[in-house]
Amino acid sequence: MLGFKIDITGSGMEKLSQKTYSAILSDVLDEVIDEAEREMKKPGEGVAGGKNPSGGAPVDTGNLRGSIVSDKGNPHVKYIKTPNVEYVQYVINGTSKMAPNNFPLRAIEALEQNQTTTKALDLALQKRGLK
């Protein structure tokens, strides 16, 4: 399982109430999970013909990409799942006949490169007049 560490520190941050801190954390996680879902749904190329995988989920029928959904029901635990596609593990890890296409990892790398968590935290703090 992949996790993110979000450290909210700085001037005045120690004075936040638990309720405000929880709301900020939830907002940050919502934005991060939304961006991760967008990255995973970007058009992607598979590994057919010896190509290097790129983009989001590979598309043949569109079933895999169409099944990518986020679950943001819990304010402190958010995740993305593919509930209707049992073959997703074979796409990600590969098989003896197909190279791996780890599109979730590419999405996470894009989040890191784009500094999504930092930007989401800035937005959440601005929303509450704390930045």
Rank of each mutant, 00 (worst) to 15 (best):
P83A: 11
I92W: 05
L121N: 00
K42T: 11
S67G: 07
G94N: 13
I108R: 09
E86F: 09
E109S: 09
L25Y: 07
V85N: 10
N93I: 02
A57V: 05
K127N: 10
K51T: 05
V77N: 11
L125Q: 03
I68G: 03
G66W: 12
A110R: 06
S26Q: 01
T20Q: 14
E37D: 11
E112S: 15
Q18C: 00
T82G: 00
L105F: 03
G56F: 00
R38I: 06
N52K: 15
A107P: 13
M98P: 01
G73L: 01
S17C: 08
D71L: 00
Q89H: 10
L111F: 13
M40Y: 03
K127H: 09
H76W: 04
G44K: 05
S70F: 01
K41L: 01
E45N: 03
A124D: 07
K41D: 02
G49I: 13
N84K: 13
R106L: 14
I68Y: 09
G12T: 09
E35Y: 05
E109R: 14
A124Y: 08
V77S: 11
G56M: 00
L64K: 03
E109A: 11
P53G: 12
Y90P: 03
P104R: 08
G50F: 12
K119M: 06
A99W: 01
D30M: 03
K119W: 02
G73P: 01
P53E: 08
G56Y: 00
M40L: 05
V88D: 02
A107F: 13
K15N: 10
T82R: 00
A57F: 04
T61R: 05
S70K: 15
E31A: 14
S26A: 11
T118D: 13
M13C: 07
V32L: 12
P104F: 08
S70D: 10
A99L: 09
Q18G: 05
K19H: 08
Q126F: 02
N102E: 07
V69I: 14
L16V: 11
A99S: 13
Y79T: 04
R65W: 08
L105K: 08
T118G: 06
V85I: 14
A124L: 09
Q115H: 15
S54P: 06
Q113P: 01
Q18I: 05
P58G: 10
L29V: 02
N93H: 13
P75W: 03
D122Y: 08
V91I: 15
Y90R: 09
D122T: 12
L25C: 05
K42C: 01
K51I: 02
S22E: 03
T20I: 13
D27T: 09
V59P: 00
Y79R: 14
